[in-house]
């Protein structure tokens, strides 16, 4: 921190979702601005973790999170409070992530068409895995986790993009099926189907690695496409 911490304690998700906090966020002037800073302080880790699972480049993740907070600020006056505030922010993050993936797919398509695909694939692959190494948990933390959990973490990486988003919202963030459906813009039944499929893919991936098939250190690049 560079000495610019908000004046009050960090707000947690429960507090942020309260009507009182929403009223503070909507207040004009320094009061609202300080509430916004507390909201950022209390949410950036969770939202960054969500984005980080979908986009590999650390710089891109930071840009997207900043875009999300800008979108929150812009949309705040119109936020009707029909859903939890944090569910709404997850929804904004989901759309920003989808925009990035679409842009990347389109750029990749353009490069492929102009015959430069090989160079691009090599460059983006390096960025992706270098990013994970740089941001990954320290080795002592990794070794402290049991082997199955370590493999599950890698299996999550290998999920197709949409399945990974559903899985992350439901099983990692602990949202309800309805909330996840709202964030993703799909039906709760679709969430159920995709979540079950994602869990099965994780189990089967872990079993495959535990049985010694393939190389557990090299998860498939599930986050490259949008998986749709």
């Amino acid at each position: 921190m560079s000495g610019n911490g908000p004046s009050r304690a960090i707000a947690n998700f429960e507090e942020i979702n309260s009507p009182e906090f929403l009223a503070q966020l909507l207040a004009k002037g320094p009061s609202g601005q300080r509430a916004f800073a507390r909201m950022v302080q209390g949410t950036h880790d969770r939202f960054l973790g969500f984005i980080r699972r979908q986009l590999a480049s650390p710089d891109e993740c930071m840009e997207v999170l900043q875009e999300v907070y800008l979108a929150v600020h812009k949309g705040l006056p119109g936020f009707a409070g029909k859903s939890k505030f944090t569910t709404w922010v997850f929804s904004l993050a989901h759309h920003k992530i989808c925009d990035r993936i679409s842009d990347r797919d389109r750029r990749h398509q353009e490069l492929t068409e102009s015959g430069e695909a090989a160079l691009s694939t090599e460059a983006s692959g390096t960025e992706r895995w270098d990013g994970i190494t740089a941001w990954d948990a320290p080795p002592d933390r990794v070794s402290a986790r049991n082997a199955v959990e370590g493999l599950i973490g890698k299996a999550i990486e290998a999920l197709p993009a949409q399945a990974r988003q559903v899985y992350q919202l439901r099983d990692v963030e602990g949202m309800s099926g309805e909330e996840s459906a709202e964030v993703m813009g799909i039906t709760p039944d679709n969430v159920r189907v995709q979540l079950h499929r994602a869990r099965k893919q994780i189990v089967e991936w872990v079993q495959e690695k535990m049985n010694g098939v393939g190389n557990a250190d090299e998860p498939r690049a599930g986050r490259q496409g949008n998986g749709k």
Partner: peptide, 24 residues
């Protein structure tokens, strides 16, 4: 799994402060 780097929060707040969105 992916904790934010220490400098990230500060740079995000700086960015939002320049945009006039937060008061820190």
């Amino acid at each position: 799994e992916y904790p934010a780097p220490d400098a990230f929060l500060a740079s995000t707040l700086d960015f939002l402060e320049k945009e006039g969105i937060v008061e820190t």
